[in-house]
Design a protein around this nucleic acid. Structure first.
Length: 482
RNA sequence: GCCCCUAUCGUCUAGCCCGGUCCAGGACACCGGAUUCUCAUUCCGGUAACAUGGGUUCAAAUCCCAUUAGGGGUGCCA
């Protein structure tokens, strides 16, 4: 069998979409598992909406994820160009060939007329399709009108008898009666091809063996098969992946879910976690493992294990996986990643910063949480309600006494390592007949300004002996004024 | 309306192809508990599903049919 060649063929008409990453991942895994090639092709035939900025963003996002392609608009390849807008002549030639062979015809119908017949068909509860009005025009006549410069498109002449079927690798044989297949527009009036023509021609010319794409394409696949037939080509294998869903099960959309890959990158999801999560959408490991790197996903990948029902994109599970990956990173690596866009405090991690990272590594699930969670370590303490200092079953005076003792202890401490401070404060609590936990909470509030923080004594060491003393004084001041 | 796809815990899924080992397993989330200076991590435990109805069979989550539900398509968008 010939070498496997697959492609991701996004349309640069919007932000880099999570669905694109999802399909790219499965194409990538399949290509790598089979020792084949993974191609990136830009489907920018919608001249109204396509932009190079979008294309750049998609390329950048997939690279961020680590899904590098073997051939593409930026790296070239044996079938360049990989941007459809640069291949317009190829599609025109192919469309013309179909006209010549009678497999396609010119259509001069106006948009208004098309809208009108659609309305009529809807009203009569009929299938909505082109009525074939221009199909009967004499070819010579049609050629004259074309030469006269009349606006027109080229449509596929579908033989309405019989049925068209194809093999979907995941779903088996899918058949549809030809009377339900429309005379699809192949070449638009602006001279550019529609998706249907362009993708069929390119998949063929680029030697694509497996078309792994989203489920939404199933209903137009018969048109593609008919096109392959019209050209006298053998269709590739089709693999229709399930569609990612919103919580309400509808196709994943911007309105109900963050869909931009930029969003996930900016929130501090790790690319490797993102891939792992996406892999879980529709795929399962034979041994049930849920956390696995891309290399392991590829190593055991098989289309047989892809499920067909549409998975709900569950942010909660993504966060969990992200947390798993964050905790698997060593501190230096985590620090480097945080410094790469997730903190305003420092450019390159120093020792103190790494200590802070070590303290939050088990507490964050997204890199973006870092700055807030460590605010009291690097900035000052935010304003807090002095009432927080007073613990249950204790009085304001108790608290003041505790803080004064604490200030003294801190000022006189010869050893400010966590073990030493903890021992000292435990001793202090014991002598005062107070619960250590209560004392610690008072200190926590005074030192961090929060009820929830990183471990107290490690945090104090990080903040520094002097600054801790200062913060205790501030707490005392607050109580005095309360 | 018409065409097509799908259907196991709230969510992701295993099992289904090759019926019995499944009064259905794992994970996330949730609820308890243990550890603990808070939070988190970690560790234990728990709640929770084969859409419905018919077949076939000694036996069905697994095979067949119907129904229902959800989704997608129905564009000179992709």
């Amino acid at each position: 069998m010939s070498q496997v060649r697959v492609r991701i063929a996004p349309s640069p008409t919007g932000e880099p979409h999570v669905g694109t990453a999802y399909i790219a991942l499965f194409n990538y895994a399949f290509a790598h598992r089979e020792g084949g090639k993974f191609i990136f092709r830009s489907e920018d035939t919608d001249r109204e909406r396509s932009t190079t900025a979008n294309e750049d963003a998609i390329l950048r996002s997939l690279k961020w994820l680590g899904l590098q392609w073997d051939e593409g608009p930026d790296v070239g390849g044996p079938h360049a160009p990989y941007r459809q807008s640069e291949r317009a002549a190829i599609y025109k030639t192919h469309a013309d060939a179909l006209i010549e062979s009678g497999k396609a015809y010119y259509c001069f119908c106006s948009a208004e007329r098309l809208a009108q017949i659609r309305d009529e068909q809807a009203k009569n509860k009929q299938a909505i399709m082109y009525d074939g009005f221009c199909r009967g025009i004499d070819p010579a006549e049609a050629r004259r009108r074309v030469q006269a410069g009349e606006p027109r498109v080229i449509r596929l002449a579908v033989d309405r008898s019989g049925e068209t079927c194809f093999e979907d690798k995941l779903r088996g044989r899918i058949a549809i009666r030809n009377e339900g297949v429309d005379d699809q527009v192949l070449l638009k009036s602006d001279g550019f091809p529609t998706y249907h023509l362009a993708s069929v021609v390119d998949d063929r010319l680029m030697g694509v063996t497996h078309v792994i794409r989203a489920e939404e394409w199933i209903s137009s696949t018969p048109k593609h098969v008919l096109l392959y037939n019209a050209f006298g080509w053998t269709p590739p294998m089709f693999v229709h992946m399930p569609l990612l869903r919103n919580q309400d099960k509808s196709k994943i959309s911007k309105r109900r879910n963050p869909t931009s890959l930029d969003f996930y990158r900016n929130e501090g999801y790790l690319p490797e976690a993102m891939l792992n999560f996406l892999a879980l959408m529709g795929y399962s490991m034979p041994d049930g493992r849920e956390v696995f790197p891309l290399s392991e996903f590829i190593a055991g990948f098989s289309l047989d294990r892809v499920s067909t029902s549409g998975p709900v994109f569950d942010l909660q599970k993504l966060e969990w996986i992200n947390g798993e990956y964050i905790r698997r990173l060593d501190t230096d690596e985590l620090a480097t990643r945080i410094c790469n866009g997730f903190t305003k405090r420092i450019g390159v991690p120093d020792e103190a910063f790494k200590k802070a990272v070590a303290l939050i590594r088990e507490r964050i699930r997204k890199l973006s949480e870092f700055d807030d969670m460590t605010a009291f370590m690097f900035g000052g303490v935010e304003d807090y309600d002095p009432a927080l200092l007073i613990q249950k079953k204790t009085t304001k005076d108790d608290t003041i006494a505790m803080l004064k003792d604490s200030a003294e202890l801190i000022a006189g401490a010869a050893d400010f390592t966590p073990a030493a401070t903890e021992a000292a404060f435990r001793g202090m609590a014991e002598r005062a007949g107070a619960k250590p936990g209560n004392l610690f909470m008072v200190l926590r509030i005074a030192v961090t300004g929060r009820k929830v923080s990183t471990p107290l004594f490690e945090t104090m060491e990080l903040i520094g002996q002097e600054e801790c003393g200062r913060r205790i004084s501030v707490a005392l001041g607050k109580l005095a004024g309360a």
